[in-house]
Design a protein around this nucleic acid. Structure first.
Length: 570
DNA sequence: GCCGTTTTCGGCCCGACTGTTTTCAGTCG
């Protein structure tokens, strides 16, 4: 079992303990073990009980629990607590801004056990009357419930892609299956997915139905399934999956039809016809042929949104989209200096092993005390270590960066003489996150105007399917970046993908450079770069417009020039 | 439940912010 899965169970156990009124210190011991385990760099699954006990915050009892979770997938305490907690309560505890204490009160005083009833209670003004609640909390709760309900059943792209790969592999092994492909939103690499759709050409539907019906992880939706499609739920993620049936002959036409957004499919082409019309004319054997028949150049699936790609195609000016091997370095990463799992050297070595030429390390700044943010003397220490490593790993280079918290007034949280010591500065907001649009926008613009800011980090602070992020005036923020020469990141973590690709297009039109940053907190985090790349491509991002596609020499010079300019402005 | 010992049990516990209080609890990063 992966560390992440084990930790998730312990984290949920702590939440349930709190919900059921367990001793606060006992809960805290679970929470502190969780935060220690989250920073543990090696696999827990291969450790015995004695070794587990050596981990800080893990004693005899937790060591045995971890061992049991790894062996059996769960442990008694979690099972007992889960058994006495309605599923809706678990969902209520996931509401952003609301923890076990508040949910416990709502459950006990009002008997509410699901999101739907909770929404009604908000509307009927019943929440504000509870002790410890008030009007503002009720409004916040209602917003959180509505947000949660509106995204129910969605999964992140990463999960959709991984799940699709697994199902496709299994379908391909079935008798009678001729062709299989992901399609619709997933093939267009949308950031969140519902339903996950897979197109299957098969001569033996019965085999497929049998495969779904027999799989314990699937819950077949007989009512909504029929001769054209099979619908079911993937239980571990509560994800909706549709298998769309077609024939081998119709496969390409149907793949095109189900992939494209209706606005792409039905857009008026040169002679007044649309792709829909063209598809009715004949059965094509490749998507390239379909575009050829339309008189258009080939358009990759992720661009088929009916937004800007057809104008590009008409002018035969589809951008040469950025690819993984265009990326020369990885910026915005954390190490054990703050809240990362791996040491500076491990982060650097792995980055080098992956074939990149440079790494930008940007641990948390001093305000982020929860994340072990760097006080000034620790910044100095890290810079000394980077100097040593740079000699050792040359020509590979580590750039000295920081993820500086943007404070309430938009200032960065070091004095200029400290800011000056970095090669680059990623400026990000971490708290507080609840602001109105004007406050948030001004706060960001102040940080952008700081001459030491190189990159704007995760501009909205959103966590897809979990929290909306603070509202900002995107255009004003992007315009400011254009004015002050600040690069904007696409935070490539699959839960963030922030800046949103829809605004990446606007940023590119304004000449703002985009950096695809994984915000890695461990070596494995580098692989998230791919998800940032996917959404960048949706916006038409090219290598030339991608900041971390610069060569080592180019980016060194850029940082140098930028600092020179900053020093002349202070 | 964990830790560190005065080795058998008492103390544990970041800090800012919000919204509720009327001095603090809950939540978050």
């Amino acid at each position: 079992m992966e560390n992440k899965q084990i930790i998730k169970i312990l984290k949920n156990t702590a939440k349930l303990m709190e919900l059921h009124g367990e001793n606060d210190f006992k809960v805290k011991s679970y929470q502190s073990a969780v935060s220690s385990l989250e920073r543990h760099p090696t696999s827990l699954a291969i450790m015995d009980i004695d070794e587990l006990q050596n981990i800080e915050g893990v004693g005899k009892s937790l060591a045995q629990s971890i061992y049991q979770i790894n062996e059996q997938g769960s442990f008694e305490l979690f099972d007992d607590l889960s058994a006495k907690t309605p599923e809706g309560i678990v969902e209520m505890m996931q509401l952003s801004g609301f923890g076990p204490k508040k949910i416990k009160l709502i459950w006990e005083k009002l008997g509410i056990e699901n999101l739907e009833d909770l929404l009604i209670a908000c509307k009927e003004n019943k929440i504000a009357a509870l002790k410890g609640f008030g009007d503002k909390t009720q409004v916040k709760l209602q917003e959180a419930v509505e947000y949660k309900l509106s995204w129910r059943g969605y999964i992140h792209y990463r999960e959709a892609e991984q799940l699709a790969e697994k199902i496709i592999k299994e379908l391909k092994s079935l008798e009678g299956v001729k062709e299989v492909s992901i399609t619709s939103d997933t093939r267009r690499k949308m950031e969140v997915i519902k339903p996950l759709e897979i197109l299957v050409a098969s001569e033996n539907k019965a085999k497929i139905i049998q495969y779904v019906a027999k799989n314990d992880e699937f819950d077949l939706d007989k009512k909504n399934s029929g001769p054209l499609s099979l619908k079911f739920i993937y239980k571990p993620l509560k994800a909706e999956i549709h298998l769309i049936f077609t024939t081998k002959e119709q496969f390409v036409n149907d793949l095109f039809k189900t992939t494209a957004h209706p606005k792409h499919l039905n857009a008026e082409l040169e002679k007044g016809e649309s792709f829909s019309h063209i598809l009715k004319e004949k059965q094509f054997s490749s998507e390239e042929e379909i575009y050829k028949a339309s008189g258009f150049p080939f358009i990759v699936p992720e661009l088929r949104e009916g937004l800007w790609e057809l104008n590009w195609a008409k002018e035969n000016a589809i951008p040469d989209l950025v690819e993984m091997n265009d990326l020369k370095g990885i910026l915005h990463n954390h190490s054990t200096y703050s809240d990362g799992k791996n040491s500076l050297e491990e982060m650097a070595q792995y980055c080098k092993d992956l074939g990149y030429d440079y790494l930008g390390i940007s641990d948390h700044s001093k305000t982020a005390s929860y994340a072990n943010g760097l006080q000034e003397f620790r910044v100095k220490k890290q810079h000394e270590e980077i100097d040593v490593l740079n000699e050792k790993l040359a020509p590979f280079k580590i750039f000295k960066g920081i993820e500086s918290d943007i404070l309430n007034d938009g200032s960065l949280d070091y004095a200029n003489d400290v800011l000056e010591s970095f090669d680059f500065v990623v400026a990000s907001i971490h708290s507080p996150l609840s602001m109105d649009e004007k406050t948030a926008t001004n706060r960001l613009i102040n940080a952008i105007a700081n001459p030491f800011t190189t990159i704007l980090g995760h501009p909205t602070g959103r966590l897809l399917l979990q929290r909306k992020g603070y509202p900002i005036n995107h255009k004003a923020v992007i315009d400011a970046c254009a004015e002050y020469g600040v690069v904007i990141e696409i935070n490539a973590h699959p839960w963030r993908l922030d800046l949103d690709w829809r605004y990446v297009r606007y940023a590119l039109d304004k000449g703002v450079q985009i950096s695809i940053n994984p915000d890695a907190h461990e070596t494995n985090g580098y692989h998230d770069m791919y998800y940032g790349l996917c959404v960048g491509r949706k916006a038409g991002l090219t290598a030339k417009e991608t900041f971390n596609a610069k060569s080592l020499d180019e980016i060194s010079q850029y940082f140098k020039d930028r600092k020179k300019s900053a020093l002349s402005k202070i």
